[in-house]
Design a protein around this nucleic acid. Structure first.
Length: 384
DNA sequence: TCTGGGGTCCTAGGACCC
DNA sequence: TCTGGGGTCCTAGGACCC
């Protein structure tokens, strides 16, 4: 089985059977159509609403085991533990399996970076790994597989003869400072068991919020482009409202298909500074539409657009501008609360801006989406 | 024909201030 | 021949993560 990226473009998750066939992560699906057919691989669009819900259930389960929980991503978390690591890890794994049906692997070590190494081993073995003596594991680990080493740093380290995590752990600090800056120093210390990356127990408020999508088919007209940008702008506005934030700046970008070098290419972005930070859909969408009108050039096949909100700040303290009308702001806020609660209660898209369009023929492909087993009443799993 | 989306941090250089 | 010291802010680019 494989799961595809947005717009059904690339393979972003693979079952073990697919990995065994040698299909790499990120492969565009059209490049392996024959293999998919030959091995009857099941193909699914991704369903982030479902994954988000299951993730929350897993994280809530993890909370039972320690007050020190850092939710690192949709499918990873760090826990502060004391006592018998092995026993806790076993019990944690079993409980998550029982309560949510999700299999997890647990790596235990003295720093986050070493815990990631331990988790790597756990995944290959029994599902639990307590790293008491890291050296053998580090000797077996290619330097590029360390958390925080991407392909560029990996290449550079290998040019200097550093091939394994063990070799990197034992370099001189000034040397790594020179090559990789402060990030490298912290990483080496972490490999030595000296924590430099603390648990982030209360996540810092985000600094930007971006909604962008490839289109299901190329867009040529300004009209459709505006629909897409309005749709993304409205989505971004809802996200910052959910987080209790406002945006000071709206950036819009549009681009043609970079994989078609024979076609004329155009990519550009435009920035709108708001007179006063806002999070209501109407203000943000208006700003985004002004931006896309400035950007648009006829004669191109557009493939993707996005709306980026920055200069985010708490909605509770907004610096007003001299000419704003507080009463109207208050009404706008009430309107958004109503819209959000309707969309929450009756489903996304119940109330929306007309500017977002109705038919949306440009919408991304997601025709192979799995059911919303735990997120839609109409799609609950059926027990036979 | 077909190629994803959403984030963060660090660094160096330029511009400016007193 | 000689030309201070100590800062901040902004931006672009590079690197990384899931």
């Amino acid at each position: 089985m494989v799961v595809l990226s947005n717009n059904n473009g690339n393979i972003v998750a693979r079952s073990n059977e697919v990995k065994a066939l040698g299909i790499p992560m990120g492969t565009p699906i059209f490049q392996v159509r024959d293999l998919i057919q030959a091995h009857q691989i099941q193909v699914y669009s991704s369903n982030y609403t479902l994954y988000g819900d299951l993730s929350q259930r897993v994280m809530q389960t993890l909370e039972q085991f320690s007050p020190e929980l850092e939710v690192y991503s949709i499918d990873e978390a760090f826990l502060g533990l004391s006592g018998d690591g092995e026993a806790v890890a076993q019990q944690l794994r079993q409980t998550v399996q029982q309560w949510t049906g999700i299999p997890v692997s647990v790596g235990v070590a003295t720093t986050k970076t070493l815990a990631k190494v331990a988790n790597h081993l756990a995944k290959q073995g029994s599902g639990v790994c307590v790293l008491t003596d890291p050296s053998p594991a580090l000797a077996d680990l290619p330097v590029g597989e360390i958390w925080g080493i991407g392909h560029r740093l990996s290449d550079r380290l290998q040019q200097h003869g550093i091939l394994t995590a063990l070799q990197l752990r034992d370099v001189e600090l000034p040397w790594v400072q020179q090559l990789m800056g402060i990030v490298g120093v912290r990483l080496v210390q972490e490999l030595r068991g000296i924590p430099c990356l603390p648990l982030e127990l209360c996540p810092a408020p985000r600094k930007s919020c971006c909604v962008s999508r490839s289109f299901g088919r190329p867009i040529e007209s300004l009209g459709e482009l505006k629909e897409a940008v309005a749709t993304y702008g409205a989505r971004a506005a809802a996200k910052v409202r959910r987080d209790g934030l406002t945006a000071g700046v709206v950036t819009v970008f549009i681009t043609t298909n970079r994989f078609k070098p024979d076609e004329p290419q155009y990519a550009n972005s435009a920035v709108v500074q708001l007179p006063q930070p806002a999070n209501d859909t109407l203000t943000l969408v208006q700003a985004a539409l002004r931006a896309v009108e400035r950007l648009y050039r006829p004669g191109y096949q557009y493939k993707k657009a996005g709306v980026l909100l920055t200069e985010l700040g708490p909605a509770s303290v907004v610096q007003g501008d001299l000419f704003s009308a507080p009463a109207q702001q208050e009404r706008r806020g009430a309107l958004m609360r109503t819209v959000d609660s309707l969309n929450q209660q009756f489903g996304a898209g119940t109330v929306f801006c007309a500017a977002e369009g109705i038919e949306k023929e440009w919408q991304m492909r997601s025709g192979l989406r799995s059911s919303g087993f735990t997120t839609r009443w109409g799609e609950l799993p059926v027990v036979r």
